[in-house]
Simulated assay, not measured.
Amino acid sequence: MDWLVKIGGSLFPENAAELLKSLEGTGVAVVCGGGDFADRVRYYDRISGFSESAAHDSAILCMDITGRLLSDLCESAVPVRTLGECREVVGSGLTPVILPSELLRFTDPVEHSWRVTSDSLSLIIAHMLGAKLLIATDVDGIYTERPPASDAKLINEISAKNLLSFGETSVDEALPELLIKLKTDCYVANGKFPERVLSILRAGASEVICTVIRGD
């Protein structure tokens, strides 16, 4: 498969379900962000001070939850836990939704902190699959300022090295570091507009509203 689409938790459930249904027959794999479930883990972590590994593992389990629930809303989606299952489902013409906790249990090379979210974890899974990563979120891409600032402008293309100075944007802080390490690119697009996602999958980012983050 050529692409892994990460459906952001901010799109769950309605926009996420619409996007997932639109991906039928495209041959892509999907992984989901933890959404509100992961936000609750972060909230209770601030109150109780869990260990970094406990919070990290729990946030990954939240990705399982959203993925399992989302796949239930789409007849063409199948929840999977291994790369082998993922490839089998793609081969059958359906859309695999990866539940990543088992996959990342022994192959998780990232730091355990809130700098790392489902964005970076999705990039790791895309690397395992030999696929390109498209992050579908609730904004159009990376901006010069955090929306809804009146002077925020969409950045159509940016190097991961330059993005390092931005901190947390619509993607997590660790993602640019991983893009540089893995020498790969990723795309960030608004998942509320499935046609934009489909255009990128079919023809790349040319003339599509999105941000390309280069790992060079």
Results as ranks from 00 to 15, higher is better:
Ser51Glu: 11
Pro109Asn: 01
Asp140Thr: 13
Thr184His: 04
Arg87Thr: 10
Leu178Arg: 11
Asp72Cys: 15
Thr82Cys: 01
Val78Arg: 12
Leu182Gln: 08
Leu23Lys: 06
Glu157Met: 01
Thr26Phe: 06
Ala77Lys: 03
Asn162Trp: 02
Leu163Lys: 07
Lys192Val: 00
His112Ser: 04
Met63Ala: 04
Gly84Ser: 12
Asp172Ala: 10
Phe166Tyr: 10
Ser170Ala: 14
Leu198Lys: 04
Glu85Ser: 07
Ile125Lys: 12
Thr95Pro: 14
Asn190Asp: 05
Asp72Asn: 14
Phe50Glu: 10
Leu198Cys: 10
Glu52Ser: 14
Val208Trp: 02
Glu207Pro: 06
Ser199Glu: 14
Thr169Met: 02
Gly204Asn: 06
Arg196Leu: 04
Leu178Ser: 13
Ala160Ser: 04
Ile124Gly: 02
Asp140Leu: 11
Ala55Leu: 14
Lys153Arg: 10
Lys132Leu: 14
Ala55Glu: 10
Ala152Ile: 07
Met63Pro: 06
Asp140Gln: 13
Gly8Glu: 08
Thr144Asn: 11
Leu121Ser: 09
Lys21Ala: 03
Gly33Phe: 01
Ser118Tyr: 05
Thr82Ile: 08
Arg68Lys: 15
Asp45Met: 01
Leu83Cys: 02
Arg40Leu: 13
Arg196Asp: 15
Ile47His: 07
Gly25Val: 08
Cys210Trp: 06
Leu99Gly: 11
Gly67Ser: 00
Ala126Phe: 01
Glu168Arg: 15
Cys186Arg: 11
Val5His: 13
Ser206Glu: 09
Val110Leu: 15
Gly25Met: 03
Lys21Ser: 07
Asp108Pro: 04
Ser122Ile: 03
Leu201Trp: 00
Thr82Ala: 13
Met128Thr: 04
Trp114Asp: 09
Gly84Asn: 14
Gly33Asp: 00
Asn156Lys: 15
Gly67Leu: 07
Leu121Gln: 10
Ser150Val: 02
Ala131Trp: 01
Ile142Cys: 14
Leu179Lys: 01
Thr169His: 02
Ser51Phe: 07
Cys62Tyr: 05
Lys183Gly: 06
Leu83Ile: 12
Val89Trp: 09
Arg202Phe: 04
Ala29Val: 05
Gly141Met: 02
Pro148Ile: 08
Gly35Glu: 06
Arg105His: 11
Leu154Ile: 06
Pro100Ala: 01
Leu11Ser: 05
Lys192Gly: 07
Ser76Glu: 05
Val31Phe: 07
Cys62Glu: 06
Ile213Gly: 07
Leu201Pro: 08
Lys192Ile: 00
Gly33Lys: 01
Ala54Asn: 12
